[in-house]
């Protein structure tokens, strides 16, 4: 019995999640929010239809080419105007589109959903760095927790840090908590995007875009500016650290003391 238990414990997955891009990566990063999970599931579901259609079309094409032969088939088919056939090949694709549209809209609207948030994070895009603000706990207009987040230059990287992805000040967010993210820019368009969180939101000057994040697990999530914003567009990455709610609170209180 004990052997069996240890045996299965050894088999238990000990995984490290993929929360940053990998060399020669082909698939997605591991989802950390229900939305990211939904996006990836939807992608896989649509791929099912894609493969079915691709197979069918290739088969038709191949068959047509194969049988178009002056020796084997000297008399080509002269069928024109097949009402049933035309009806079928019009209705079937539209049916498939409708089948895809239902879950697509479900996902779209669940992304829009703002469930009563407990934390608000403000993100301001600058040329070329991100500024983060936490003002839920401030008692005056100049008492917010504000910090800039710059990329760590290649020469300053420590062993194990990711090139062009590491920043000096990370965003800290609690897990299992509804977080409202408000995104704007101070100069030109930017886009705040983190693949493993399923977030990509344009930062527009004068506009205050809202999205929400619900972290399912702890981790360090990497993203990049995703709207061409000038010379150093590629050098303003985003790092979100998902921590336990208690750790978040202690981080916040430390930050408040710093002010």
């Amino acid at each position: 019995m004990r052997f069996l238990v240890t045996f299965f414990l050894c088999l238990a997955p000990r995984v490290a999640f993929l929360d940053a891009p990998e060399v020669w990566q082909f698939g997605f990063q591991d989802p950390a929010t229900p939305i990211a999970q939904g996006i990836q599931d939807f992608h896989n579901d649509v791929c099912f239809f894609m493969v079915v259609i691709l197979t069918f079309v290739l088969w038709m094409l191949g068959r047509t080419i194969w049988h178009f032969d002056a020796i084997k088939n000297p008399v080509p088919s002269k069928i024109i105007h097949g009402t049933v056939l035309e009806l079928a090949w019009t209705v079937t694709p539209s049916f498939i589109l409708m089948i895809i549209a239902v879950p697509s809209f479900a996902l779209l609207y669940s992304m829009d959903e703002i469930t009563d948030p407990a934390v608000t994070l403000k993100v301001i895009g600058h040329q070329w760095y991100w500024t983060y603000e936490y003002s839920d706990y401030s008692t005056a207009d100049d008492q917010s927790i504000i910090f800039d987040s710059y990329m760590v230059a290649e020469d300053d990287l420590e062993l194990g840090q990711l090139r062009l992805l590491e920043v000096d000040n990370r965003v800290v967010l609690p897990v299992k908590t509804h977080v409202r993210v408000l995104i704007t820019a101070a100069d030109v368009l930017h886009s705040w995007a983190i693949p493993s969180l399923g977030v990509k939101c344009d930062a527009v000057p004068g506009r205050l875009n809202q999205t929400s994040i619900f972290l399912n697990r702890e981790g360090v999530f990497y993203g990049q500016c995703s709207e061409l914003c000038g010379a150093n567009h590629g050098f303003m990455p985003i790092v979100v650290e998902g921590v336990d709610l208690e750790d978040y609170i202690s981080w916040i209180s430390n930050k408040i003391e710093e002010i």
């Binding site: 229900p34 999970q37 939904g38 599931d41 939807f42 579901d45 879950p103 479900a106 619900f214």
Partner: peptide, 16 residues
Amino acid sequence: LSLSHSLIYNTIQKQN
């Protein structure tokens, strides 16, 4: 498909 996506919706609600 519709089941899995309504599941997402439900989990969001539950988590809330």
